[in-house]
Write a protein that binds this DNA or RNA. Structure first.
Lengths: 333, 333
DNA sequence: TTGAAAGCGCTAACAA
DNA sequence: TTGTTAGCGCTTTCAA
């Protein structure tokens, strides 16, 4: 910048003014300066700028996801980045594989980099460790899961209602022998889904006493094995609700393996590509990752501008998409 | 930091020494300082640090992808982030939707943020605009596609060989009436795949004169429509090679729609989730995004440490995965 | 082993 | 309309 000022024959502050489109610069000097920037291939140093600027903004936010390789979270990432890019805000993305330790380490790293906001998928049993940052007024929004031990904005799917829809859908087909298969039980969304499912059974007068709840399934293969065991046991269910994406894939494999794809009904929580290309297509409770991401970005921007409002949880509706697997009638035993 | 120094009753430089684990600090003062950092909840300011540091490193890299929502690129992202995180390097990720204009704008933004390196999927017709950064010795690695008009490291799939494998596979089943369906022709990988496919036909003595090349297909729906038209026309192919992921999905839909899934052979370039859950499973030329990402990260790290070596293109092998759709014999007309 | 002073590239505050 | 000075939080250099 000093070089530019020298070349243009003006003061360094004038260059700063031109670069930042501040008023009070004559058109003539403006052009001289711009000419010099081009000649020297000058690029503003954002790191230096943020050090001195009034609000100390770095124009960056930290995004913490289970994994950037996961399509669901990738869509959230994309949606929020689209909103933020318009405001010149860059996204630092990191994956924590649902490990509490990495969550904390990566958030600390974001804070060391003085991000202007945090968008986090929490997994630790408490987010109280964020209290210092919160009282520092660092904008923060939780996505997909609500924080624990900290009152802050969150944007989540309508997990309980979605799971209830799935249960109601299966029950309306005449199923009474249902089974629930789920992933990690220490994650809030999982508990919400289970709650919605159980509640709906209650409302419909279906006893949960005989409903197997197979939870804590770790990934696709584990789910497959559990489903095979369930389906080959005594009094197998006529309908399965899978509360998690990878679990759904595992159940699909089990059904295919046992030749039961057209016999046992299946509704999964969470949509996935090609869910309509299998035979039958898979009925799912679809979430709206783009919507979640967009709202999260808007909330972070709002927190950056306003004084802090009362924290709120934004609930994004889910939608049951019937594709065949959920519309299979109970078979006779 | 000044506050920490004050509280600990030491000089500011001593705090800096402790924070950075520099030697020449007595254990006693070390403990005093650490105690003070905890008491004040002190967090090093990475932005300020990088301004003054010897190499001016920001410990961040810029990653440009077609879209972070795309699973293939998401896997690349994940793999390279895993390598870089170990070195304390954060990843700024951005999506450019294969638009040249956004590529340039986002790269400029990365450079303004003084990233320590760039990992880019290029789409512009030339990357010559990076010459200044290149001569500035900014580490850069291109992924999935090679740069044009700039000699730099690249990590790409073995596109030509992969497409040739697909062609050879279909020909070995007795197919001679092949069709080639592809996406944008202005992207390097597409041209490589076409080349590999054509070359293999030549080697096998299959005339390309009668092979329809349907290219420039824009997304899944466009591909579906094109495939339907092709398959319902005169002398339809008995085997299709789809050179791009979304095109493969479109072709799959067309085949299903026409009831030809078990009749017309299909090999797609690029694996995707559930490719084995359809009926038949889809035979694909699988790429290795994790491998691509890992090598890209290693190259960027190497460029950060070494003096610049002769640029190289790293070719990651592909693998034909037979799942059924590619093993369908030619049907009689 | 420790600390004081200078300065990284920029912007805020103020002066001309 | 323009320029000068100070200083953001840190590390470097150099001296004690």
């Amino acid at each position: 910048m000093r070089d530019v000022a020298l070349l243009a024959g003006v003061g360094i502050k004038t260059v700063s003014r031109v670069i930042n489109d501040e008023p009070a610069v004559s058109e003539a000097t403006r052009r001289k300066v711009l000419q010099a920037t081009r000649q020297l291939n000058y690029q503003l140093d954002m790191t230096a700028r943020s050090l001195r600027r009034a609000g100390r903004e770095t124009l960056s936010i930290g995004l913490l996801l289970p994994s950037v390789a996961n399509p669901f979270h990738g869509q959230i990432h994309r949606a929020l980045a689209d909103v933020l890019t318009v405001h010149g805000i860059a996204v630092l993305a990191a994956s924590m594989d649902d490990e509490a330790k990495r969550e904390k380490a990566l958030v600390a790293e974001f804070l060391r980099r003085r991000v202007d906001g945090l968008i986090l998928t929490p997994v630790a049993t408490s987010q109280a460790y964020l209290m210092p940052a919160y009282s520092w007024n660092v904008p923060m929004v939780f996505v997909d899961r609500e924080p624990i031990g900290l009152d802050a904005d969150a944007v989540v799917s309508d997990n309980a209602v979605g799971a209830a829809k799935a249960a109601a859908h299966l029950i309306s087909q005449g199923h009474t022998r249902l089974a629930y298969l789920g992933g990690r039980t220490d994650i809030q969304t999982a508990r919400e889904r289970r709650r919605g499912f159980v509640d709906e059974l209650g409302r419909a007068g279906v006893s949960t006493a005989t409903v197997p709840f197979l939870e804590g399934l770790q990934g696709e293969e584990d789910a497959r094995a559990a489903a095979v065991e369930l389906l080959t046991g005594i009094e197998p269910p006529t309908a399965i609700f899978s509360a998690q994406n990878l679990v759904t894939l595992g159940v699909m494999r089990a059904l295919k393996e046992l030749g039961l794809s057209a016999v046992v009904a299946l509704v999964g929580f969470g949509d996935f590509p090609l869910s309509d290309m299998t035979d039958p297509g898979i009925t799912v409770v679809a979430q709206h990752p783009e919507h979640i991401g967009r709202v999260a970005a808007e909330r972070v921007l709002a927190q950056m501008e306003e004084v802090r409002q009362e924290p709120r949880t934004y609930i994004v509706p889910t939608k049951l998409v019937a594709r065949g697997s959920g519309e299979i009638s109970p078979h006779l035993t």
